[in-house]
Design a protein around this nucleic acid. Structure first.
Lengths: 245, 245
DNA sequence: CGTCAATGGACTGACCGCAGACCAATAGAA
DNA sequence: TTCTATTGGTCTGCGGTCAGTCCATTGACG
């Protein structure tokens, strides 16, 4: 019998999946890493205070502190006491170790296709939704700034700026849940993206597509926004598949 | 200062959201309810054994049993001991109490728009992905069966059959994560859908759209599948907005 | 008619995460 | 210079969750 012979069994698998990915500590570490790696808190920035952050994450301060301790030991953040102190993101972030692509692909297995399909649905949908909304001046500025940041980013910063732009587009959809989902799936692909070389040529192409997406959103043209984002994520997907197969 | 004046603050909110919706017990109850209400386990069906289910949900048997106990007391399931025993979904499910729509809308607040935008992205993306894939005969049959079930469903069963069809479409995308996400957002909208009256007229219209979506998927026509699903979810969204505003 | 495998039911000891209170340090404000 | 609000750092008692084990029940099958 082949794996998942019964189609109904797949629905089970989707619904009876684990209720949680890990313990609160691990989840918290993952969240903080997400904020740092996706560029929501930039190097030099201060994280919210422990009490505030613990409340937002619905986690006890003890657990949050353990997570911060782990990040401190990994070299991501540093803490300073006293008023106007806090926990700050280091200026020099630890370099992600470049794993062998094929090895990564094997470990992920079908998870790669899973993530790519999900990402396409989320990001394309977000772009279309954003173009269908009435954006405030502030939101429009925000989008423009992120686009400029990405276009002007150095190679070392490109991935982070790229993430920030995509997050900004997701935010422009007006749906916090959609934004979270985009952030999550991006983190799942992050390790893979780190495994493939970043070519100047690809960046230029990517920037053009970014601009097309943002322009369509600002012009309130959903169909064009959708198509542009569609092409963009398809490009990344093709790149990943090529390098990881 | 208005709420969320700073656009950057919104990204924070999305990333620093609670690491988990509730304790394992509550999450487990929610999962089981999902399986029942979305029709993945039909009335009369047996749930997997406690040991099996606990393992799949990554929850201890104690916690799972507490969840099952809650569902038993609510009238959703019944357990029988002995070999060939198990926990079975009741033939007569408890009727969802019909809350005043406006009240619901007020409680949910912006959560409604959030869920609707997310749902559109996920389901439309799923339909397009499904139409872009090479489906096995089994998958095609599965889709056809679910479509027939829905078209032939009585009013009392319609919501559950409808959910099953949409889940089948999501499954056909080949992405388990996408399937899970569709199930989740559907549960979020479930309470709202229960609050609005189910009209024969709407059902007929809905069935036509369902058929269009499935046909496009089976014909491997992504653009049509996307458009058909787009219209379908837009219709539901309009209905919900009208009743809840 | 007895056997037996698989199921729900019950209990224990250990551990993790929680809320809350308190301490220590720091830098701006008075 | 002193005061003070805010921040990270520390500790304790409590409750939920876990893994593991054993018991009670049931119905198909030999």
């Amino acid at each position: 019998m082949s794996e998942h012979a019964d189609p109904a069994a797949r629905a089970d698998d989707a619904l009876f999946r684990p209720v949680r990915a890990g313990n609160p500590f691990e989840e918290t570490v993952e969240r903080l890493l997400q904020a740092i790696k996706l560029g929501v808190v930039a190097p030099g920035d201060r994280l919210p205070s422990e009490r505030d952050l613990a409340a937002r994450l619905s986690v006890s301060r003890v657990t949050l502190r353990e997570a911060i301790r782990a990040l401190t030991e990994s070299g991501y953040v540093e803490s300073r006491r006293g008023r106007y102190g806090g926990t700050f993101v280091n200026d020099r972030l630890p370099k992600p170790r470049r794993v062998a692509p094929k090895r990564l692909a094997r470990e992920l297995g079908s998870g790669l296709e899973d993530a790519l399909v999900l990402r396409a649905a989320l990001e394309v949908g977000a772009a279309e939704a954003a173009a269908s909304r009435d954006l405030s001046d502030e939101e429009r500025d925000h989008l423009g700034s992120r686009l400029a940041d990405t276009a002007g980013a150095k190679l070392a910063d490109y991935r982070r700026m790229d993430s920030r732009l995509h997050l900004a587009i997701a935010e422009a959809s007006g749906s916090p849940s959609l934004t979270s989902a985009v952030a999550d799936v991006r983190m799942r692909l992050n390790a893979l993206l780190d495994a493939i070389p970043l070519l100047e040529r690809n960046i230029v192409h990517s920037d053009e597509q970014h601009q097309a997406v943002v322009e369509a959103i600002l012009a309130a043209d959903p169909a064009t926004a959708r198509r542009a984002m569609q092409e963009h994520v398809a490009g990344t997907a093709a790149l990943l598949r090529a390098f990881l197969t």
